[in-house]
Nucleic acid binder design. Structure first.
Length: 876
RNA sequence: GGGCGCAUAGCUCAGUUGGUUAGAGCGCAACGUUGACAUCGUUGAGGCCAGAGGUUCGACUCCUCUUGCGCCCACCA
């Protein structure tokens, strides 16, 4: 074996082996209990980033753990068609040829999309395999595959028939670049630096002006009123008056509405019903006219008069010039404006009046609120429950139609003969899976399908049950549903998680999953969210290339405490790299010694050797046993970082630093048994987080004794030796002794081999020490002389239960050490004082539990004894 | 404006129902190739647990307020 672990030689090899052996495949008919996780389907346009690495490693750890516990485990993989994102990619491709999607037409464009998906759509899946993800790849699904499409249509139809889907003219978020509607969730608000413009509108017949304030002056071209608050006395004179809209010279009414905040701006609001949601609501209340002044690319249209054909921002500039010329622009002040931005391309949203499909959310939300309130669906960390409920209680209807071409086409047909767009009636509208032969209203056979497609989330929200076969009643659905855990980032709590709960309750009459694990966001060192456009990403594949997948996985799990954000830099991954190297080298040492000792299957009989165990053997077996229970407990509670930390601590700082060092003193068959046993059990505990290196070493151990085909299907270890030994305290005493003595020699600047004399007031401790003198000497790199003390010596801090004398011949800096002892004595006295005060407090004696009191008494006695001994030090 | 969080070592975080001297990793300093590992070992320095009150025999932990920071929701043009 090489002195350094080389992940490249192991990772692909074992991954291939696992696939060939079919170790990740799940069957719905077994006698075992199921454990199911559905993957949050990555976008087909996606490439693996750190967010995925974090998200999918967590899932893989859980899934591998459960598999070892004997569950029938299904990790359901798949990808999301990601409507706008994918369309943008292919549009860009076309643009390189100087083409727009309209140039090639809908059919050709969607053909190209499918081709693109064929070619690049599973990049991320291949990358997930590099990471070690143990999904059941044979079951892979796509949100736009045939069965899925059927399910999506089915859902639309059922909801429509139930009256939960409606169509209407509303102000929606419009992205003029993607030319589509966006849901509220897809148009996050961001602050931008802008201006608040104060514009004068002449009041008819009064010879004076009123001033309105606006951030989007160009929208004034669509104004159909000016509004004041009815209680605002400053403007009571305006009531019932008419105002002249500058530039266009349109006569518009003054209306009174309580939506107007007298405190903001001037207290007078221009009302643009077709371009602002608040104004839209006001217009409905006051029967105003709706004037649309822009086309679908936010270019001003014929209603904008002479500004027709200008882009909205250019139009704004020209309009302001004009106003200034006429002296109507009173002032402009810098203003921080919250504007919606397209979550895909970042373009500023234009609120726009248009006809869209919506889902009524209130009735769907009610049961989804209930299951979370009742704890049938649990959030980890718990605080997300409140966030969820808060959002669900204020839920808004969901705009689900998108004016793009890539996605599930809305299963609605319109009759060319009897459907009237402006009537608002359902006449001539047919909702059905397939194209109806003729119109059920008038019998005409000229029907055409709605041009829009559905929001991508309208398919993703069905993910947990459609992937298992819905709407058919499949065995998979029966066996694997509901799923157990859902692992996701907080960003898509509302987009996805909440909606899955709603959809599942509606269509499955059951929850989609029991536990929702919400992990943090991946950020760079400075705390900035990693994103491609900022150029601060760390590519997981590069890390895998440099350090190995196990190192990446372990580092992430170690750093990601439940739910908190993860700050990453290249160096952070050295934790995992160094750890895998440590494991590799310890294994190398053990394997070399197994060979040297001729260790084989016939020697592997650990229980028979139990009578020969020394103190260190017993101690490490007990520590292992504690680790087994701790690791399992932490994974059960989804405390994956605690699980990783306990592995790290055990292997490095207990097994390597102490046990292996001690074992070197008496390397024989008994030691080989313990080393083999501990390493083999440890590898199983390690496997969920570091699957590759654990398999590699496992297979090497397999040559000494038959332990199984693959670690993937090995059993999670039980606490076989937990009641075997209880030597921890005794062993820890010797550890303390060694640590104290080492510290001692360092302080005194001893050259060469120190010579110690040990003593203890406790004869049992002294006996243990004598029995283990061999390795204590070795670890101290010292000579240990027998009692009684002869010649000149002085005492080290006791406190470890032993007195340590050191012959003073080789000591160079006693005065420094005397200072150290002095401060130590000071601290001791302080503690003795505070403890005594505490123990003389009647309140403490009365109220504190007996154990606490007796502990305090004990430590006071110990401290006093320690002080006494220090004071008796004979300074050479 | 409403809601939810966070504040512990230079950095990133643990600290489980309040109970002796608050821990780890990284970083830093000094020393060190003793039979796996320098991707290593040994030792060490470093904390008024954000501030102020309160509850308690006892508070990093519970309550209130203050300050600073973060996230989510919402129609202040």
């Amino acid at each position: 074996m090489q002195t350094q672990y080389n992940p490249k030689e192991t990772e692909d090899k074992w991954y291939k082996f696992w696939l060939e052996q079919g170790l990740f495949s799940a069957k719905s008919q077994t006698g075992r209990k199921p454990f199911t996780i559905v993957i949050p389907p990555p976008n087909i346009t996606g490439i693996l980033h750190m967010g995925h690495a974090l998200n999918d490693t967590i899932q893989d750890v859980l899934v591998r753990f459960k598999r070892m516990q004997g569950y029938e485990v299904l990790w359901m993989p798949g990808t999301d068609h990601a409507g706008i994102a994918t369309q943008n990619v292919v549009e860009k491709q076309l643009a390189k040829q100087g083409l727009k999607k309209e140039d090639v037409g809908r059919q050709e464009f969607t053909d190209r999309l499918w081709k693109w998906r064929q070619e690049y759509g599973s990049t991320i899946i291949e990358q997930l395999k590099k990471l070690g993800a143990s999904c059941d790849w044979q079951r892979i699904r796509f949100t736009l595959d045939e069965g899925y499409s059927r399910a999506v249509k089915e859902v639309f139809i059922r909801l429509y028939k139930k009256g939960f889907i409606y169509r209407g003219n509303y102000i929606i978020n419009w992205c003029p670049r993607c030319k589509t509607a966006l849901s509220d969730e897809e148009a996050p608000y961001k602050e931008i630096d802008s201006f608040l413009y104060y514009i004068n509108y002449p009041v008819e017949g009064e010879g004076k002006y009123i001033t309105v304030a606006t951030t989007r002056p160009e929208t004034m071209l669509g104004d159909t009123a000016v509004a004041i608050n009815p209680d605002d006395e400053r403007y009571s004179w305006l009531k019932g008056k008419t105002v002249i809209l500058p530039i266009l010279n349109r006569r518009i009414r003054v209306i009174e509405d309580r939506a107007v905040d007298p405190e903001f701006g001037t207290g007078v609001v221009k009302v643009t019903p077709a371009h602002d949601p608040v104004d839209f609501a006001m217009a409905k209340r006051h029967n105003l006219e709706f004037i649309n002044i822009m086309d679908d690319t936010a270019v001003l249209n014929e209603n904008a008069g002479k500004f027709r054909g200008l882009d909205r921002f250019e139009g704004r500039r020209r309009l302001l010039e004009e106003l200034e010329k006429e002296g109507l622009l009173k002032k402009k002040v810098p203003y921080k404006l919250n504007a919606g931005h397209c979550y895909r391309c970042g373009t500023i949203i234009e609120p726009r009046l248009s006809l869209q499909w919506f889902v009524k959310m209130k009735p769907l939300a009610e049961p989804a609120i209930k299951v979370v309130e009742e704890g049938r669906v649990k959030f980890y960390p718990r605080r997300w429950k409140k966030v969820y409920l808060n959002w669900m209680n204020n839920i808004q209807d969901w705009c689900i139609s998108r004016q793009i071409w890539w996605g599930h086409r809305i299963p609605v047909w319109y009759c060319a003969n009897c459907y009237d767009k402006n009537s608002g009636s359902d006449k001539g509208i047919v909702v059905s899976l397939d194209k109806p032969a003729k119109c059920p209203f008038c019998g005409a056979d000229n029907l055409s399908q709605d041009k829009d497609v559905l929001d991508t989330w309208f398919s993703s929200w069905l993910w947990p049950f459609v992937t298992l076969g819905w709407p058919d009643k499949t065995k998979d659905l029966e066996f694997f549903y509901p799923t157990d855990a859902l692992v996701t980032a907080s960003e898509i709590l509302f987009f996805w998680v909440a909606r899955m709960i709603m959809a599942s309750l509606e269509f499955m009459k059951d929850i989609p999953f029991r536990d929702v694990l919400i992990h943090g966001t991946v950020r760079d060192e400075k705390g900035v969210k990693m994103s491609k456009s900022l150029g601060n990403i760390i590519d997981p594949l590069e890390i895998i290339e440099k350090f190995g997948a196990d190192a990446l996985r372990f580092s992430l799990m170690m750093l990601a405490s439940t739910g908190s954000d993860v700050f990453l830099s290249d160096e952070k991954f050295m934790v995992g790299r160094n750890y895998s190297n440590k494991i590799w080298n310890a294994a190398r040492f053990i394997i070399t010694n197994l060979e040297k000792n001729g260790f084989g299957a016939s020697q592997y009989r650990i229980s028979e050797y139990a009578k020969d165990f020394n103190l260190a053997d017993k101690w490490i077996l007990q520590e292992l046993s504690l680790l087994i229970s701790e690791a399992g407990r932490n994974l059960d509670k989804y405390r994956i970082n605690d699980y990783a930390k306990s592995l790290y601590e055990f292997f490095w700082h207990k097994f390597c630093d102490w046990y292996i060092e001690i074992a070197k003193v008496s390397m024989d068959t008994v030691r080989c048994n313990v080393l083999f046993f501990v390493l083999e059990k440890f590898l199983r505990l390690l496997h969920p987080v570091m699957p590759f290196i654990s398999e590699e070493i496992w297979q090497k151990l397999n040559k000494f004794a038959d332990i199984g085909k693959s670690i993937v299907i090995a059993k999670w270890p039980k606490q076989e030796y937990n009641n075997f030994f209880d030597e921890k305290e005794i062993f820890d005493n010797l550890k303390d002794l060694i640590i104290s003595a080492r510290s001692f020699t360092r302080y005194l600047g001893i050259q060469g081999k120190p010579e110690f004399v040990f003593d203890s007031p406790d004869p049992d401790k002294l006996k243990t020490l004598v029995a283990n003198l061999d390795w204590v000497k070795k670890l101290l790199k010292a000579e240990i002389l027998k009692m009684p003390v002869k010649g000149t010596s002085f005492v080290l801090l006791p406190g470890c239960g032993f007195d340590i004398y050191l012959l003073t011949g080789k000591i160079s800096n006693i005065s420094e050490y005397k200072d150290k002892i002095k401060t130590k004595t000071g601290k001791l006295k302080k503690r003795i004082f505070s403890l005594s005060t505490k123990l003389s407090n009647p309140g403490f004696l009365q109220n504190a539990p007996e154990e606490v009191v007796s502990n305090a008494k004990e430590s006071l006695a110990a401290l006093k004894a320690e002080l006494e001994r220090i004071e008796k030090i004979k300074w050479g």
